[in-house]
């Protein structure tokens, strides 16, 4: 990322978190209608993902059972019935060719998508905060070394490296874990740059000097004084990274190098649906629509979080207008 752009961006974030913290944040977030609606959708998706086996059992289905009697093998495996076999037994129809229940596969797919994205985001934030804080608080040499490592991290093209890594790691390694590790390990430079810039700015403020003069150690200052003030920009950035991570997982699975069958994932369903869109359009529209709704809600929620955490942005800009907390390129 361009240094000049980034410094400007980090500067646009609030320097110190508002004093009254969580309650004020919720109030500001609830004041935005779009963000509240998006939060509700996101909550629903998370609940569905957590309760996936339960929901599937409620529908009386599971994601892996083949139902050859439900597809018309004479017509090449097209689901029998209207709209891809939607009915009382199969709420969203069945998969062409195999006849597996789509509702069960979709909710189990949500589990994979959201789980991978959550893990990847946590990893990015953790590495970013540790590296950024260490660079800001350590001596000059440590800062130089860490900044160089961050530069190298920036130069790693996410999709390309992820593709390469997925090729050499043995297939026995659990795929969802691997994908989360790859995304988290490659794409943390944005967080660390923001944390470093903010921590350097905070370091010059009086309350940090006071803590230092009272004889507290470097790491105690980092934990007790800096971290709380860094929460706002870090949470904002994480909220914007999260939807990107969902897209990256879907993209890798779409390319056939991500989540492997039989584990269901939305990206992988899209690849398979590619050949069925004429005879079974619901099979394509379901994962595509869900992916769109998920990423859109998360993005709107991320913007809402940014506005709620940055009162200056709230007065200046309405939803969807903020300076992009740019992440590494959205997969293209």
């Amino acid at each position: 990322m361009s240094e000049a752009l980034l410094v400007q961006e980090a500067g646009a974030a609030p320097l110190a978190a508002p004093a009254s913290g969580a309650r004020q944040f919720w109030r500001r977030l609830r004041a935005q209608r779009a963000a509240t609606a998006a939060a509700a959708v996101v909550l629903l998706l998370f609940l569905a993902a957590l309760a996936a086996p339960l929901l599937a059992a409620l529908a009386g289905q599971d994601p892996d059972t083949f139902h050859p009697e439900l597809v018309d093998s004479a017509a090449g495996g097209v689901p029998r019935g209207s709209f891809g076999g939607i009915g009382a037994d199969h709420w969203l129809g069945v998969e062409p060719q195999t006849g597996r229940d789509l509702f069960a596969r979709i909710v189990h797919g949500a589990r994979v998508s959201l789980g991978v994205a959550v893990a990847a985001t946590l990893l990015q934030v953790t590495i970013g905060v540790v590296v950024g804080l260490a660079a800001a608080l350590g001596n000059r040499r440590l800062d130089q070394v860490l900044s160089r490592i961050t530069d190298i991290n920036v130069a790693l093209p996410l999709m390309v490296i992820a593709l390469g890594l997925l090729a050499v790691v043995p297939p026995s390694f659990p795929r969802p874990v691997l994908i989360a590790l790859v995304i988290g390990g490659i794409n943390w430079a944005g967080t660390s740059k923001i944390v470093r810039a903010q921590a350097l700015a905070l370091k010059t403020l009086d309350f940090v000097s006071a803590a230092r003069l009272s004889g507290r150690g470097r790491w105690s200052i980092a934990r007790r004084e800096l971290l709380p003030s860094l929460a706002a920009p870090v949470i904002t950035y994480a909220a914007l990274l999260f939807p990107v991570n969902i897209t990256v997982e879907a993209a890798l699975s779409f390319l056939g190098v991500g989540i492997k069958p039989p584990t269901p994932s939305w990206g992988q369903m899209l690849t398979e649906a590619d050949t069925w869109y004429q005879s079974a359009p619901t099979y394509l529209l379901l994962p595509a629509g869900l992916l769109f709704v998920t990423v859109l809600s998360l993005t709107v929620l991320g913007e809402g979080v940014r506005t709620a955490l940055d009162p200056r942005a709230a007065s200046r800009l309405s939803i969807g207008t903020g300076r992009e907390g740019r992440t590494k390129e959205q997969a293209s």
């Binding site: 879907a250 992916l291 769109f292 990423v295 859109l296 993005t299 969807g320 959205q330």
Partner: peptide
């Protein structure tokens, strides 16, 4: 906003 949310 929809554009940024749609995978290519």
């Amino acid at each position: 906003l929809a554009g940024t949310a749609t995978p290519v």
